[in-house]
Structure formats: C-alpha cells, structure tokens
Write a protein that binds this DNA or RNA. Structure first.
Length: 296
DNA sequence: AACCAGGGAAGAT
DNA sequence: ATCTTCCATGGT
C-alpha cells in the first residue's frame, strides 16, 4: 500500500491501470445508492472504524492519486485504517496489466476493457453488507433492490452527519421476521437476512474464515448457508472476498451483457458462456465486472 | 389487470 | 443429480 499521511489529508497512490474517473463513473451508476454520495467528482461517505466513525471526502489529483479529506473524525490511528479501507475498496492490490494483456484480443472483452480502462472491482469490504446486498437483490430488478436496501439501511443503520452506516449484524440478529417483512421484502428474504446476521454475530461465519479457505471451499461454506445459493455465493466471493475466479454464471445480467456485447438476438446458453470464459480462466471476477459495466 | 422477473428452497422425479 | 413449483413484491 502506497500512501502519505499529511494529518489533515491523505494521499493514496494507485498502481498502474487505475483511473479515478472510470471508478467514479461506476459508482455514479445509481441515483438510488444510499451508502455514499457523489458530487463534482468527489465521493462522500461515513466509515465505521475500530474506535471511531469518520466521514471522508475522496477526490483525485490527476487520475492516479486519491486525495482523502476528513470531514469529521480522524484520530492518528484512524488515518491508516481509512487508507487501508480505501485501498481495499478500490481493489488496489490487483495488478490488472495481465488481465488487459489477456483480453486485448478477446472477442467479447476487448470492447469493455478498452472502454473502461482503469476500472476496478470497487467492492463491498464488509461481509454482512455484501451478503445482505446479495440476498436483497435476489429475484428482483435492480431499482427495487436499491429501494429495499434504502429502507433496510434507514430503518436499522446509523446516520452519521448526512451519511449512513450499514446495519450491523448484531442489530439484525435480534429482529423478528415481521420487522423486516414490514419493509416489503419477502418473508424468506427476512429469514435469510436474520439467519446470516446470527451466523456472523456468533462468529460461525466471518471474512477471516472464508479467506483462509481456498476458492471452492469458501464457495461451499457459503452455499451451505440457508438463503445463499451459487449466485449469491459467487457474488460475495467476487465483491467482498475478491477471489479472482468467482463467477456467477447463472446471472441474468451476465447473459444480457453477452447478448449486448456480441450483438446477439438471444441470450447465450450456459455452454456458450463457459466456452468464452475458458479464455479468461483466473480472471472471471474481472471479466464479469467489466461485462456488467456494459449494461449501464 | 394479468403477467413477468429471477435466485433459492423444498419437494418430486 | 435434475426438474418443478412456490415465493410475493414492483414493473410492465
């Protein structure tokens, strides 16, 4: 991690193949997002750290240096924690150069990788947030998913200045199914969310445990949880745990992105998707992420 | 106003 | 192992 602490601000030096503009563009894709806001090419959000809560403003100097100001909070030890969070959020440990090398002649990926050069898998570092977003998003369109997330966050999260912190698992673990169903999600979703919150609260499930396992083992650990099938498991393996080979192959967005990018009239079959994906073995996460980006 | 969306569970084959 | 049905809401 490369960064400088200047007390009232931080500078974070992104690696090659990073474009602040592309990442801002990605983060601006939904007007209904409630976990951060973007205005004038700057990102604003609250972060819950070990010992305090801070509000940060993230802008850029050029396209490779992230410039972080603290709008509230930021004791000495918090600043390194913020730098680490942002480093992870933008997936700055990944070297994208070999991905670009691999895809520059790929019939499907050459277009998205050229168009969105420097885009990162801007993830969901918090495991409960990633799982909850996956569960909330099951079987509904994206706009309703954002509506549900907003209701969930505003009902059970915490507001810091103008910004929301995602609900904590210990809060959700204590709810009844009806408390969540009142937000107009299905009874099942309410059950799944409470179940996952309880597993995290009891530490039976944690990011650390999932990261100790290899990809296939972590996938099995997740799929064994009620409410988490292959789609949600791979979504979380991609966006939170950052296994490079995660691949939600049944995702309808992925099928639509194939259709759009290849100019097909019909969605591709699973076999076709597998065939294309052979070329990007080890980079399925980034391939999926760039293909999704084609859709909005 | 009927019908569809779409991932997961549960039950059936 | 693979299939069918159900969930329950918002969008069309």
């Amino acid at each position: 991690m490369e960064w400088e602490d200047h007390e009232d601000y931080l500078r974070i030096f992104a690696p090659k193949a990073f474009s602040f503009k592309e990442n801002i563009g990605y983060l601006s894709r939904s007007a209904d997002e409630c976990m951060f806001s973007i205005s004038d090419e700057k990102i604003y959000r609250a972060l819950a750290l070990q010992n305090e809560t801070v509000v940060v403003e993230i802008s850029s100097e050029g396209d490779r240096i992230l410039f972080v100001r603290f709008l509230s909070g930021a004791a000495q030890d918090a600043r390194a924690e913020v730098a680490r969070y942002i480093w992870e959020w933008f997936d700055l440990d990944t070297n994208l150069e070999s991905f670009y090398q691999l895809t520059k002649n790929d019939p499907l990926l050459h277009e998205p990788t050229a168009k969105f050069y420097g885009l990162r898998n801007v993830g969901l570092p918090d495991l409960f947030e990633a799982l909850a977003w996956g569960i909330l998003g099951q079987q509904i369109n994206l706009s309703f998913a954002y509506t549900l997330k907003r209701r969930f966050v505003e009902a059970f999260g915490k507001k810091v200045d103008h910004y929301w912190l995602f609900p904590l698992p210990e809060t959700i673990a204590r709810l009844q199914v009806d408390d969540l169903a009142a937000l107009k999600m299905t009874q099942k979703k309410a059950e799944y969310l409470i179940g996952v919150a309880r597993l995290i609260e009891s530490n039976e499930l944690s990011k650390e445990k999932l990261l100790e396992a290899d990809f296939k083992t972590a996938e099995k650990m997740l799929v064994n949880i009620r409410g988490i099938g292959p789609w949600t498991a791979n979504y979380v393996l991609m966006r939170c745990l950052r296994y490079p080979s995660a691949f939600p192959i049944d995702d309808v967005g992925l099928q639509n992105a194939f259709k759009l990018t290849l100019g097909y009239d019909e969605k591709p079959t699973k076999a076709e998707i597998r065939q294309y994906a052979e070329h990007w073995r080890g980079w399925e996460t980034y391939a999926t992420f760039y293909l999704w980006r084609m859709l909005y």
